[in-house]
């Protein structure tokens, strides 16, 4: 059912990566992505592959689920590979020609290299979304962005985090409501399945308008409820859940640093 859709792709499991501090995960993810891109030669890339596969295994999220993510970007992947295949720096050996385009061994190597890089990138990024709940992600982003308040964006960070929290909370509610309205309109003879694309788009108007009106009403009531709970725009607000770095977080950090050093060394070969 539509109702069971939850925002984000959190996959519940009990792994060291699930338990790690979300702030640490975000920072390390960015670091890992940078170093995967810095892999210059084949050995460095192979080393990255080993690292990413190890992370996937430790995360305890089934490999099948990671592959599903890959399927979505398959067209982009193939496109990038094909474009790179025809790349040549002039010194390479010709393999074969299609029409006016020539495929060289250097081009082929580059195509495989680029595709692998993108696959690694998708895999490592999905580790973050699969092992971190949306709420933890929001908290971590708020904390990581908090230095912005010193450059005049005092309320912006808090507002952004509040918006994300409310969005996460209301997505299932609104999906449920859209479903109700859809059924109500169907009962009145609305047809969402047949007709041209234009007709079907038009048929959505009687769903979107009631949904919009009720959302505005909800927003108004929510604002009153928040006011009753002493909300004043986040001034002087504290948090019940304090993020604290645990020994395991430092271990994970150390492993990632080792990976980065490894890439730098291998690049020198």
């Amino acid at each position: 059912m539509l109702k069971d859709i939850t925002f984000g792709q959190y996959y519940s499991a009990n792994s060291p990566i699930h338990r790690a501090d979300p702030r640490m995960k975000i920072v390390l993810l960015i670091t890992a992505i940078v170093f995967i891109f810095l892999s210059k030669n084949m050995y460095a890339l192979l080393f990255s592959c080993v690292f990413v596969l190890a992370v996937l295994l430790i995360s305890k999220v089934p490999f099948k689920i990671y592959l599903k993510n890959l399927k979505a970007i398959l067209p982009i992947l193939i496109f990038t590979a094909i474009i790179n295949m025809f790349y040549s720096d002039g010194t390479a050996n010709k393999l074969f020609s299609i029409w006016k385009l020539t495929v060289t061994d250097a081009g082929l190597y580059r195509a495989v290299f680029m595709a692998t890089r993108i696959i690694l990138l998708i895999f490592i990024s999905s580790v973050l979304t699969y092992t971190t709940t949306p709420n933890d992600l929001t908290d971590a982003l708020e904390k990581l962005l908090s230095p912005l308040k010193y450059i005049g964006l005092k309320t912006a960070v808090h507002t952004l985090a509040m918006m994300m929290t409310i969005a996460l909370r209301f997505i299932p509610t609104l999906v449920e409501e859209a479903e109700k309205i859809m059924n109500a309109q169907k009962a009145r003879g609305a047809d969402f399945e047949n007709g041209s694309l234009k007709d079907r788009a038009k048929a959505l108007i009687p769903i979107l308008i009631p949904l919009l009106i009720s959302s505005v009403r909800r927003a108004y009531e929510l604002a009153e409820a928040m006011e009753c709970r002493c909300y004043n725009g986040g001034e002087g607000k504290t948090r019940m859940k304090q993020l604290r770095l645990k020994p395991m977080d430092y271990v994970i950090c150390f492993i990632t640093v080792l990976f980065c050093v490894g890439i730098i060394l291998i690049n020198l070969i």
Binding site: T165, R169, T173, R218, E221, M226
Partner: peptide, 9 residues
Amino acid sequence: NPDNQLISS
């Protein structure tokens, strides 16, 4: 309406 009073998921 309880739905319109809860802020967090």
